[in-house]
Design a protein around this nucleic acid. Structure first.
Lengths: 336, 336
DNA sequence: TTTTAGCACTCAAAACTTGACATTGCTAAA
DNA sequence: TTTAGCAATGTCAAGTTTTGAGTGCTAAAA
């Protein structure tokens, strides 16, 4: 690819992102100070190489997925993280009062607004968080509430019915035992550990006697595995011209509502990932770009920040922004 | 209105609900065994009275809002609650194992599926629930987690930073005091009560000393006031022909995403309410029907089950269904 | 008085036509 | 290697025609 072709490709991406209209040779000739025929020759060869395509025989060109990919690798990803335009984000992250969840929500809201895309925060899972405390609160004679609290202050609860009247002393014993057993155990190991202890140690007697309670605790633990997410900005995004096709629009809403989108967002990939169109394995996302970045908490949890929008998205802005946000969310988890 | 006119109106509603096409005189003449000219005369007079309207001069008729209203008052609302078709709902509500939130979610999912509308469960608020227990769990040297638990087993938590090292003994005293003070206080009265006690009683000293903690508790209490909701079925609904107009569709998604819909759903009205089109005060819902039914918990909380869909909705099915669901959710709260 | 048959009329929707326009590919000359 | 020039292509918007479903009205029948 010649230098001019490289320039033309990047201009096509930039202009198309801005206007959502195919780019013709004439408009570029003004910028590049060569004749439109020259541009056409270059365009033709860029098209042969698969970087751009026509919407119909006599139309201007739009970037192909390969074109976007080239653009991202050579431009967007190499931009030094430049926090110049990120003033509002800096404000959000520098607020030492607010708690983590609220900061994340605000950042995601702003991300979606700034890009007109749908923004998603996923996790972090509490899967590697450690049990800080388990507890049983008696609500009525026959009702109790089980509580599990992790070292990050994440709480899950589960209601239980107790057929017989609760014997408080005995219960206290069970809970004390569970606390002793499970304190500082990662959530992921809890079930295994409980079963092991029940099988192999003296605890057997005490725990077996109260099977309902143990089961209910296990259920409560399993709730930590459910993904916690925050998703926003559908409405903004739908006004993009890509969604003038009503069936595309419906399909996208379905993909969000039935949580298929999380299959993409929650991928195993580490760090930054950009999936353009058909690079997404899900058919309904074949016209969509998904950008994700993961972050890690100090005890091995992984969370994800993602942006979902049309392929024609402002990568120059979005990619550094997501990097920045993921980095700062990670920081929130380091400040313990 | 003559008997035949009444019949014609009801047939127009039924057919239009089924086909989404304007109904002509010819199709009705087959059903009613009178000539199409006769039907036309009756239609003309129904139109004069505002029950039906034309989409253009030579089109068949569709029900007006007044027509739907008549239909609902004379047909749908008077249907004996007939649990015949409700087998799957019965199954959901007869599951004694599952907890309330899950049962409600399942019922709402099924409601939305059965009607192809968006279904919403709102509340019940925990505003009148009573404090069962407050608690502070130490997470690290400088971090704690505040917990508030209500008589219904609803938990809210709030993280706090403690600038100084936490003095466990003293903290225990504060918590014990708060428990003593607040136990069985309705959430709505907590803030008032706390402030009163701080001003007027000896407790003053102890509580004032730990202002951060009290503030954090107040913040935790305020979380109960946030509405808890579950919303589902947008995707199904959007495939209805009413949403072939892309801007209507976008507008509706926006109304949902920015939570405007809750202004309608969360109305103060008791019992069953059906708002057709412009009966909704919000412009973006002027082509939409919202059906809501409230239910009450034994301690004065109110919850709402709602269905949001096109005006052309199967009222015969939807109205009894919502009544049924609201009644059974209420039962769930009586079984304590 | 009510119902019906018959007919002219209306309008939306779909199919087709047309012209303006942007853009391309190609060719031959610079 | 670049450029000017020009025919060819296909979209889009606007206009036209055709079709068909449905109405309103009138006069006759029940």
């Amino acid at each position: 690819m010649t230098e001019r072709q490289d320039k033309i490709l990047k201009l096509i991406v930039d202009e198309y992102v801005r206007t959502a209209e195919p780019i013709g040779s004439k408009s570029l000739s003004k910028i590049l100070k060569v004749s439109s025929a020259t541009i056409r020759n270059d365009m033709s060869s860029l098209e042969d190489d698969g970087f751009i395509e026509k919407t119909h025989t006599s139309s201007g060109r739009i970037p192909s997925e390969k074109g976007y990919r080239y653009y991202i690798e050579t431009v967007a990803k190499t931009i030094e993280e430049d926090t110049d335009g990120f003033f509002e984000f800096e404000q959000i992250f520098s607020n030492k009062e607010a708690n983590r969840d609220i900061i994340i929500k605000e950042a995601i809201n702003l991300l979606s607004e700034a890009t007109n895309c749908t923004a998603i925060s996923l996790g972090p899972n509490a899967y590697n968080s450690k049990v800080k405390k388990v507890q049983l609160v008696q609500l009525s004679l026959t009702h109790g509430l089980i509580l599990v609290i992790t070292n990050y202050g994440h709480v899950e609860s589960n209601e239980i019915n107790l057929d017989e009247k609760i014997d408080v002393d005995e219960l206290t014993k069970v809970i004390d035992l569970l606390n002793e057993l499970l304190r500082d155990t990662p959530i992921s190991k809890v079930s295994e550990k409980l079963h092991y202890e029940i099988e192999h140690n003296q605890i057997k007697e005490l725990l077996k006697y109260r099977e309902t309670i143990v089961d209910s605790f296990i259920e409560a633990f399993s709730k930590f595995a459910q993904s916690r997410y925050y998703l926003t900005g559908q409405a903004n995004m739908l006004y993009q011209p890509e969604f003038n096709d009503i069936d595309k629009l419906r399909e996208f809403i379905s993909t969000i509502e039935n949580k298929e989108i999380f299959k993409i967002v929650n991928s195993e990939e580490e760090g930054m990932s950009v999936k353009i169109g058909t690079e997404n394995q899900i058919t309904s996302l074949n016209d969509i770009t998904v950008i994700s970045s993961t972050y890690d908490t100090i005890d091995g949890e992984k969370g994800t920040v993602s942006l979902v929008g049309p392929k024609r998205m402002d990568y120059r802005k979005a990619i550094p922004l997501i990097k920045y946000i993921a980095k700062h969310i990670q920081k929130l988890y380091e400040e313990e």
